[in-house]
Structures are given as structure tokens and as C-alpha cells.
């Protein structure tokens, strides 16, 4: 690849997911992030019990993300061929784990009790 500008990356992602889905995903990610910030600022703290429950889902998010990538690319664990593959696998797992943890925390924060009544 000759150059990797942000504009080009966005063009590639738009083609990868389709214009609508890509920006819907971006909007979704932004909304969840904003909701997370809202819940944390509202509660003025990270609620430990909520966070622990959310973190329990992290391994599921990690495994789901990895299996999803393998499913859409006709590949599996036996195709890991070098260190960069392990790094990529870990990054995909971390993204899945982090994403699901934040989402779970936000959902608990919005749908469950407020921090003061949480415990």
C-alpha cells in the first residue's frame, strides 16, 4: 500500500461494510462511548459491582470477536503462522472484550438502578 491516510482508511471501511452499515457502526460506537461517559459522570464513579459483572462478559466478547473474524475469513486457529498473527489475534480479542464490557456496564447503568441504590 502506498499510503494510509485517514481519508483513505475511511473510504476502505465504507467499502468493506457498506456506507450505511459502516457509519451506523461508527454512530453505535460513539453512542455507547457517550453513554458510558454519561453513566460514569452521573454516578461520579465507576461502580465496582457493575464493573465486575460487566467484566465477566469480557472473555465471551473476546472469543466471539475472534470466532467472528475467523468465520468471515474462512480461517481458524491453526492458520496462526507468526508472531504478528498472535498480536492480531490478541488485539481482536481485546477489542471484543473491551467492547462487550463497556456495553454491559452501560446497559446496567442505564437500565438498572442508579449507583446510590446499586448495592
Amino acid at each position: 500500500m502506498k499510503e494510509l491516510t485517514p481519508g483513505m482508511m475511511i473510504a476502505v471501511f465504507e467499502e468493506m461494510f457498506g456506507m450505511g452499515l459502516f457509519w451506523a457502526l461508527v454512530a453505535g460506537a460513539v453512542l455507547v462511548t457517550l453513554a458510558f461517559l454519561f453513566v460514569v459522570l452521573r454516578d461520579r464513579k465507576l461502580v465496582a459491582s457493575r464493573l465486575v459483572r460487566a467484566e465477566l462478559l469480557a472473555p465471551i466478547g473476546a472469543i466471539a470477536a475472534i470466532l467472528f473474524v475467523q468465520f468471515v475469513t474462512s480461517s481458524g486457529f491453526s492458520d496462526i503462522g507468526g508472531p504478528v498473527d498472535v498480536i492480531a489475534l490478541i488485539l481482536i480479542g481485546v477489542a471484543g472484550a473491551g467492547g462487550l464490557t463497556v456495553l454491559a456496564y452501560v446497559l446496567q447503568g442505564l437500565l438498572g438502578n442508579r449507583a446510590g441504590k446499586a448495592s
Binding site: 467499502e15 468493506m16 468471515v72 503462522g81 492480531a88
Partner: peptide
């Protein structure tokens, strides 16, 4: 690494190449 058989390079072929081509 260009001369290593890698999963990452396969991901590029299967996922990123067509999108880059279309862009």
C-alpha cells in the same frame, strides 16, 4: 514479514483487498 506464511496476510487478502480495490 513478506516471506512468512501468515494469517494476517490472509486477512488482508480476504477482507481488506476488495474494499481497498473498490475505494
Amino acid at each position: 514479514a513478506p516471506l512468512e506464511e501468515l494469517w494476517v496476510s490472509w486477512l488482508m487478502k480476504e477482507v481488506a483487498l476488495k474494499a481497498t480495490y473498490n475505494a
